Simulated scan of single mutants.
Amino acid sequence: MVDEADQGGEARKISVVVPCYNEADNVIPMHDAITEQFAKALPGYDYDIIFIDNCSTDGTRDKLRLLCAQDERTRVILNSRNFGQFNSPFYGMCQADGDAVITICCDFQDPVDLIPKFVHAWEEGHTVVSAIKTNSDEGRVLRLLRTCYYKLIRKMSDVSQIEHFTGTGLYDQRFIQVLKDLDDPQPFLRGIVAELGPANRKDIPYRQAGRRAGKTHNSFTTLYDAAMLSFTSYTKVPLRLATIGGFVVSAITLLLAVVFLVLKLLNWNQYAAGMAPLVILVLLIGSTQTFFIGLLGEYVLTINSRTMKRPLVVEEERLNWPADRPRKGEGPRE
């Protein structure tokens, strides 16, 4: 592969977006590792590093200010509060102006040496390059649950979802423009890439390492949010099951009601006596209704959040940002 800079042309620019939250021990090593990759493996490219901080409270912001003072290629967006694991990186991608945009986690679980592989695949003509976890240091039970989830969502969705894809990868600026045009206040990047990504997408396998430092920010709540967002955004099967299940339960209860009425009219007390059948019937109906109402509530919650048209994030401050680079949806900054 020959870089444009080696041919005498203007160097193509790569923007590396690094979402972070309470990563005080990782932001400086991550910056240095990215810089080293471009110096050694991609010397013919221009680049910048965009950290988008989701309102860290552990000193991460002090480290980011230090990086900005030392390196003019480092840009920082400071969010006014924590806007979640999906909105913040998506917003950061939409602010990048590189010919290609790379996203990578700040905890070093995604190897930094993937960056040259992403760029080489991009130069081969691939508009989107996705990093796919083929193995990881996470527990076997958790990985098994993830695998089952991916297989389930693939079977239930009209869109062929990408297994073990977390969003890390490279995106050509043409695809970034697609993301900007979506105007989705609750974007699920993994599903968007699967649904709207180009046919020439390339997947690069890798082994996910453990965190370099700090504690994971994933919890049952964040994992549940991710699962529900993908289900409610890309599947109709649960709603269809709710409809079919409702019809089936209604038919069963109507049949049982007729049976009990006939038994009562025939005075077959030995069959119709007692409250146990009635209690069981009421519990069956109640539990079924509660489950499907909760399921419908998840869909309504997703619809509600999308119709509110709230901003992806609210910025508190930008650091080291060129004055001629406007925010998404705004005119040039003064």
Results as ranks from 00 to 15, higher is better:
Asp25Arg: 10
Met156Trp: 13
Leu67Glu: 14
Glu315His: 10
Lys63Asp: 14
Asn135His: 11
Gly139Ser: 15
Ile77Trp: 04
Leu182Trp: 03
Leu283Asn: 01
Ile285Asp: 04
Ser219Thr: 15
Gly139Trp: 00
Ser250Leu: 13
Tyr47Cys: 08
Thr147His: 05
Asp158Val: 05
Asn82Tyr: 06
Leu283Pro: 00
Gln208Tyr: 01
Met308Asp: 12
Gln95Thr: 14
Arg240Glu: 08
Arg240Lys: 13
Ser80Cys: 12
Glu298Gln: 13
Met275Lys: 06
Pro19Trp: 02
Gly329Gln: 13
Ile115Trp: 00
Pro322Glu: 11
Ser80His: 09
Asn304Arg: 15
Asn269Arg: 14
Val129Glu: 03
Leu229Tyr: 00
Val258Lys: 05
Phe175Pro: 00
Asp203Gly: 04
Ala33Asp: 11
Ser305Cys: 09
Phe108Glu: 07
Glu138His: 06
Met1Ala: 12
Lys133Leu: 07
Cys106Asn: 10
Lys151Tyr: 10
Lys264Asn: 14
Thr127Asn: 00
Tyr45Cys: 11
Leu281Val: 03
Met228Asn: 01
Thr221Glu: 15
Phe260Gly: 02
Val101Ser: 03
Leu42Thr: 10
Asn200Arg: 09
Gly8Leu: 05
Ser88Val: 15
Lys133Asn: 09
Tyr271Asp: 04
Gly44His: 06
Val193Arg: 01
Val178Tyr: 02
His164Cys: 08
Ile115Ala: 02
Met1His: 08
Ile49Asp: 01
Leu145Tyr: 04
Asp203Val: 04
Thr290Lys: 12
Ala209Lys: 00
Glu316Gly: 12
Pro116Met: 05
Gly329Ile: 11
Pro238Val: 08
Ala213Ser: 13
Phe188His: 10
Ser157Asp: 06
Arg318Lys: 02
Asp324Phe: 07
Arg212Ser: 02
Gly125Ser: 03
Asp53Leu: 14
Gly8Gln: 07
Gly8Phe: 06
Gln161Asn: 04
Arg212Val: 01
Pro116Cys: 05
Lys215Trp: 02
Ser136Met: 01
Arg154Pro: 00
Pro277Thr: 09
Gly286Met: 04
Ser250Ile: 07
Phe247Arg: 10
Arg174Asp: 02
Arg211Ile: 03
Lys63Thr: 10
Pro326Gly: 10
Asn267His: 13
Ser219Ile: 03
Tyr299Val: 07
Ser88Ala: 14
Tyr299Asn: 09
Asn218Trp: 11
Tyr149His: 02
Tyr171Asn: 01
Leu179Asp: 03
Gly125Gln: 03
Ile102Tyr: 04
Gly294Ser: 11
Tyr234Lys: 05
Leu67Thr: 13
Ser56Gly: 10
Thr134Met: 06
Phe165Ala: 05
Glu317Arg: 10
Phe86Cys: 12
Asp46Phe: 09
Arg140Val: 01
Ile49Asn: 07
Pro116Ser: 03
Thr74Gln: 12
